[in-house]
Design a protein around this nucleic acid. Structure first.
Lengths: 335, 335
DNA sequence: GACGCCGATTGAAAGGTTTCATTCATCGCC
DNA sequence: GGCGATGAATGAAACCTTTCAATCGGCGTC
């Protein structure tokens, strides 16, 4: 039971095949009586337009694709929502694939989308320097890097000023009078983590504080478990050496740290102030609402989609690296 | 600069177009010397196989689609991970679209996937009774309903026994000695919410407790804000009438309730015990780790994908409604 | 030396849609 | 009543791949 084609519809409605196509694509060009006849035939036959054939003929697709780094991190799903808005405004659909931080899956998804001839690919790559990105673009599919960046200007990208974010967090802690603080995050291979740390150190130095009073605790990964473990390490320090505040490289770490503090009877923020990063929904909803560095997630997604559409459609497109400004949201976890 | 086609590759490699196709699809049929020549030509021309043309000719696609109800709920992203595993095992890709609970977007995504002739569509619908689902299947695309169900057996579906889940939660609270409890959730149009409530009431009755000692607080939606607000309502009750435990219809509600309790000085679980539902990652990581009814999220996704593949590939497929069994995970929030 | 066989290669057809230059029909107007 | 203009409908060509029956060339065998 092969599904009906325009030809079948045309036969049934007693019109030519071109007319059916006109009904589909330029309904104004067709008289209302035949239009109705054609539409009736479509209904009776259960006609579903074959997108492959359409796309083959026209060479254009109606979709943008986003290869997500980690679909279970709320940050990325919010970014994707911003993209959806932009795509919808242009009459396009956004489809997602999740790489789950696996380079092989990332590669497979990139290849699939390239073969599908999507209008363009948004990607938060496992490794932004991967030559696979260059290859994908060279082969004809526009690519925009999301929440990461290439230091040369070889790709369009959208990101947030992580150095400033680090700075904001530490300036806030300095304002609150802290004289010994911790930076918690890792792994240090991720450029953004080191940027945040650099900003943190700069702000600390600007405040005239000695470098050794900013303790760095490196975690294996940016998840809740890493935060808990860091909490245990903090608790193990002598009270003289123990920081009175912690700046965590993302909210998951901060939540883990908070959890450890509460369960071990450390009061937040009195004995330990905490600043997170990302301002995910759960940050405001934590037991002690978290201060956090907010990234404009929806704008990030929207801007990325807009850049991609420009790259895809504008003949004299130039690569741009958009950088957004983060913002500190002070809540109870810093007093 | 149109991208190269098999014809271009064939010309460059000095072979026929059929041979190029053989290199792509049956590399064993082609001598290694010509194969190398063809592959070299592909590399030089930047050939990318046109998936639309392939699909048009063969009639088969390599993808499954999942229309997610709410991509920002970690529960659904975990379900999607289970689907990814099943898809990968069959050499297929899974693509996601988010309806964000908007029926119009759900409809648009269903239409898109049907036109793309994906192998099948997994969907957590806004409304499982929507005729759109029937229409999509009638028009030729297999559909499996995820985490919802049709009460007639008209569709394959996977879900979890919500009545049992409600039962487990309340039995646990009864075991803990609570004699007055609350059910918090809503809106009541969602079948699953009412199922959980029915199970809760049944267990309560089985324990010989009077119906009026199970207080129902209806929320507008299953989010953190709803939980906070319910917390305020609980706090407003006289201590004689105030329940000593709450069973929340999902973890987001439970987290909101927990947050309210902590910030208002109510100790958990001593003054208020809390059971959530879904057992999302943040449940275990909450300030007071949440007891919760765990749904087998990955299995749910995997089973859904398997059903879909059977419906798509097996000529004498019969619709099945798979129901999984939930499990109570006791943590600190219930003592 | 002819024959048959086998693996390697070929090339035309098919798949469903869109496009566009043509044709057809109708109508108003001189 | 004939003419041009206008609007509607037509149908062949093109998009790129895969498939499959047919051809080719080389080899071993009788």
């Amino acid at each position: 039971m092969r599904s009906a084609s325009v030809k079948d519809v045309a036969a049934r409605a007693g019109v030519s095949l071109g007319t059916v196509s006109n009904v589909l694509n330029r309904p104004d060009r067709v008289s209302s009586s035949t239009r109705e006849r054609v539409e009736a035939a479509m209904g009776e036959l259960g006609f579903v337009r074959n997108e492959s054939a359409r796309q083959l003929r026209t060479g254009t697709s109606q979709t943008l694709a986003y290869v997500v780094l980690d679909a279970s991190n709320p940050f990325f799903t919010d970014v994707a929502r911003g993209m959806e808005g932009a795509a919808e405004a242009h009459g396009l659909s956004l489809v997602l694939c999740n790489s789950g931080q696996r380079p092989d899956r990332e590669a497979a998804h990139l290849a699939l989308f390239a073969q599908q001839r999507v209008q363009g690919i948004l990607v938060t790559p496992v490794d932004p320097t991967s030559p696979l990105l260059d290859r994908t673009r060279t082969l004809g599919t526009p690519v925009v890097i999301v929440d990461r960046t290439r230091h040369d200007a070889s790709f369009c990208s959208v990101s947030v000023d992580d150095e400033l974010g680090g700075r904001l967090a530490v300036e806030h802690l300095v304002d609150r009078g802290h004289r010994r603080i911790a930076f918690i995050g890792g792994p240090m291979e991720i450029g953004q983590i080191t940027d945040r740390l650099r900003g943190a150190r700069a702000a600390w130095a600007d405040a005239g504080r000695p470098a050794e009073d900013l303790v760095v605790l490196v975690t294996d990964w940016l998840d809740v478990a890493g935060g808990r473990e860091a909490g245990a390490r903090l608790a193990g320090m002598s009270s003289a050496k123990r920081p009175t505040a912690a700046f965590c490289a993302n909210d998951l770490i901060a939540l883990g740290l908070l959890q450890h503090a509460i369960s071990s009877g450390t009061s937040v923020p009195e004995q330990l102030a905490i600043v997170g990063y990302d301002d995910i929904e759960f940050a405001a909803a934590a037991a002690v609402p978290l201060s956090s560095v907010r990234q404009p997630r929806h704008e990030l997604g929207r801007a990325a989609a807009d850049l991609l559409l420009d790259e895809a459609g504008n003949p004299d497109h130039e690569h741009r690296q958009v950088q957004f400004t983060p913002e500190l949201v002070a809540r109870r976890s810093t007093g």
